[in-house]
């Protein structure tokens, strides 16, 4: 346990030297602050941010996650010849990246919200929850891919394809299925399919909160109708964190068998 904390400490130390984190915070901060200044009320700002959160956070997390993993290769080789367990190293690297990425997001979005709208505004908490969850999901996917693929270019390419798939293609595929099979009752199938896309889950969580389900696509409308707000949110959060646990576990399994 202490080894894990120490590894996280050294990762933070190393990461905070880069300018990445300052830029990432500044982008969120300026965007949120700007949206408030252009006259949005907290609800509208949350909605506008939602689209950024659903696209940018997965992209940054997955690309940065793979790059980070490949760049930590020396660190891993150095530490693995020391009496350190692979679990501690893998989780240390994972938390050493997800914790600062989450913190940066919480600061960048949270602070403008606080001074413009106060802490207790409606969709605000959900917005933060979804952003942090997606950071954890896509960093975990990034690590899983990076463990499996030795070649950097291939690994980063795969992560971008995966992001495109979840962010854009998946909804298209669902629509295509619905269109092709329109004669059958497909509500249940669609609901189940939406559990397999973390970005969809994030979207569902937010729109259940904002109660504008029908505006936000077919799966959202169904989710709200089927589960109602509270139960639907609970299911979505649970599914989202399964999306964190599964790739972390698979990634660790591959990592523990890897040759260095």
């Amino acid at each position: 346990m202490t080894t894990l904390l120490k590894i996280i400490k050294y990762q933070l130390h190393d990461l905070l030297r880069g300018k990445w984190f300052i830029i990432y915070t500044a982008v969120f901060f300026l965007l949120t602050d700007g949206l408030f200044r252009f006259g949005g009320d907290p609800g509208q700002v949350s909605l506008s941010l939602m689209n950024v959160v659903l696209f940018i956070i997965p992209l940054v997390s997955i690309v940065f996650g793979t790059m980070f993993f490949y760049n930590s290769r020396e660190f891993m080789e150095l530490l693995l010849s020391q009496p350190i367990s692979r679990v501690a190293l893998f989780l240390g690297l994972y938390l050493g990246l997800t914790l600062p990425l989450s913190a940066v997001y919480l600061i960048g979005v949270g602070i403008p919200f606080m001074y413009h709208a106060g802490i207790m505004t409606g969709g605000y908490w959900i917005l933060l929850l979804v952003g942090v969850s997606l950071t954890w999901v896509f960093t975990a996917l990034a690590f899983f891919i990076a463990v499996l693929s030795e070649q950097r270019v291939k690994g980063i390419g795969m992560t971008i394809v995966l992001w495109l798939f979840f962010a854009i293609l998946y909804d298209g595929i669902i629509l295509f299925i619905l269109f092709a099979l329109e004669e059958y009752p497909l509500e249940k199938l669609t609901l189940i399919l939406s559990l397999f896309n973390p970005i969809d889950l994030g979207r569902i969580l937010m729109l259940l909160q904002f109660d504008i389900a029908a505006l936000m696509g077919y799966t959202g409308a169904l989710f709200s109708k089927f589960y109602g707000n509270m139960f639907g949110s609970a299911v979505a959060v649970l599914a989202l964190w399964t999306w964190v646990a599964t790739p972390v576990w698979l990634g660790y399994r591959a990592f523990s068998r890897k040759d260095f």
Binding site: K6, Y10, D14, E74, E77, L78, S81, Q82, P83, I84
Partner: peptide
Amino acid sequence: YMPQIARFPENLTASEVITMISDLR
């Protein structure tokens, strides 16, 4: 263990690497 090719986290200084490893071991 002394590996064939010395691979270290590039941003760190030698004394930081030594401190880090003594801290972890």
